[in-house]
Amino acid sequence: MSGSRTLRLISFVTWFNVKMLLSSEFFILLTFISPLIFATLAFFLFKSGGGTAGQTLLYVALGAGMMGVWSTTLFGCGGAIAWQRWEGTLELLVNAPSRYDYILVGQTFGAVVFGFYGIVATLAWGVLLFGMPLEATFPLILPLSLLAAIVSLGALGMLIATTFVLYRHANALGNLLEYPIWLVAGLLVPVATLPFWVRPISWLLAPTWGMEAIRGATIGADPPILAIAMCFILAVVYYVAARVTLVFVLAKARRDATLSLQ
């Protein structure tokens, strides 16, 4: 399959998945409403502590937006393969001439791209309701930061999709993993304030570096080169791990004749 056809396939599946998620009330809540509620909550908490400067608002808005991105990634990717099973499309997709992992890449990127609308929503919330200044210290680096965050979260989403399928109730894992990643990745609370043993865990997580890349480009003092590089490195690691897991899962499902079983 040529590179351009692969890209076309991935972009088509991405767009298709975005449209599917747009029709889901649950994902609308997760991406657009939930980050606004958490952003408002965090704003009042910071206000209570005396921190309502423009940069604090931007910090909160970006953090709450990324919380929405993580939720959408977690739930959108965690159930990706399971949904294909329920809808009866998994066998068709696995046996199609296109490589299945490319389809999965498109599907997980769709969830992540959809999640990033949440950041736009929280930024609009900050500007319209709280007069938040919309500025970036490194505006030229910001698009690269966003791209790095999307790529790393998309690859993590693919790893989530391939591993969660081994657990019968993927949504329950989603319920479990929402808050801890919000906390450990430093989306609203700096990682430096958490116990020292949490920090190495945060280094392994795409949301940590994605958030740092975006915050670094908007309110950081230095360009977030390390964070952007880490996003791309982690994306490669996640993709390789996801590919290996996928090959194992699919081979096992074919061998046991459980591909279409729920």
């Binding site: 965090a42 908490l45 929402e178 609370v189």
Partner: peptide, 19 residues
């Protein structure tokens, strides 16, 4: 699991933001 991490998240966020 969910409530455990909810408690830890808000305890960390709340005490960081408000002292």
């Amino acid at each position: 699991g969910g409530p455990t991490f909810q408690l830890l998240f808000f305890a960390a966020l709340g005490s960081y933001a408000t002292n």
